[in-house]
Nucleic acid binder design. Structure first.
Lengths: 178, 178
DNA sequence: AAGATAAACAACAAAATGTTGGATATTTAT
DNA sequence: ATAAATATCCAACATTTTGTTGTTTATCTT
């Protein structure tokens, strides 16, 4: 049994409304009524779908997470170094592909949830595929270090209007990772 | 003209109340009335000091920022590598010193604002002191990379109940930075 | 085309936010 | 130690935002 078109439709317009509002104000400043007004959806309908704005937001974040997860699946390398190099590419492609959404969230809001989401998602993927590192350091530390470096660099690149090309960035990150 | 003791007093109890509430719930879930109730401060008094709970929160974050700034001043190294090694120490000491506050914020809440604050503060300090890096990569990229790595590793260490000693962590980070 | 159901609408209750004026308590400065 | 200054308390109120509900209308599914 497939989902009613009307449901998909209102969900999407609610997502869109939220994304656009995020360009104007902080998430905290956005009221449920703002979202509904922009989405041309009745407030009672909103509550039929989500308990509050956080649920809507998390649902949005979750759809991003699912995309990222799928994209990470393409990485087959289990060797640490190779995995990271591939991952950098997948990651930069990912945020570039969802540019509008990421931009709207990163403009007025602190990188927060998004970074956590990305970080967690990649960590899970790494833990499944890569088992040990060559340096003499515990795995969690190792992962925290390199993921922190790569994700943060990617986000900064993105926030600064992608001053360098994606290929250039991959090049830079490769060089730094040596 | 020094500040009225009463003001300092209520401000402090409001901070304390917020910090303790953060151990129990998300910042979003905390209401102004909750804070006042816990602080034994009248709600109208709260509004005499802060426009909303965000202002209180940001004021708290800001006091953390000021400490960190002061502590970073002790670093005199302008050579990049040396700066980072010193900075790691200052940084880990900083979060360990304010353990209770950082813990309360990091338990139920996403690392977000805190990480941004730390990241921004150290970046400013770096930009004042260190001018160029040896690798063939733009400065912002370089900084984003290493700071992302170090700060993230530090936060993860802290969130996981400091499984390793601080000296051990400094050792690990030194090794990874080579 | 008929039945099912989502969305709109309107009305309401409750929670939380802000604001205000006057009484009370504490602090500062003399 | 006391007077003047002012921060806090208190209580009441207006406003905003959140949630909920029952009915009608529109849209989708089969």
């Amino acid at each position: 049994m497939k989902t009613d078109l009307r449901i998909i439709k209102t969900n999407n317009t609610l997502y869109d409304a939220l994304i656009n509002l995020l360009k104007e104000k902080t998430f905290e400043e956005i009221k449920v009524s703002d979202i509904c007004q922009k989405a041309l959806v009745n407030r009672s309908t909103f509550y039929a779908h989500f308990n509050d704005k956080y649920e809507l937001f998390m649902s949005l974040i979750n759809s991003l997470k699912e995309s990222l997860q799928t994209e990470l699946k393409s990485i087959e390398e289990t060797n640490l170094k190779d995995y990271y190099l591939k991952m950098i590419e997948v990651f930069l492609n990912h945020i570039e592909g969802k540019e509008q959404i990421y931009k709207s969230i990163l403009i007025n809001n602190r990188s927060s949830i998004i970074m956590d989401m990305i970080y967690d998602t990649i960590t899970e993927d790494i833990n499944q595929k890569v088992t040990k590192n060559d340096k003499d350091v515990p795995n969690e530390i190792f992962t925290a270090y390199y993921l922190g470096a790569i994700v943060n660099t990617g986000i900064e690149w993105f926030k600064n209007d992608k001053k360098y090309s994606k290929d250039q960035m991959i090049e830079y990150l490769d060089r730094l990772m040596v």
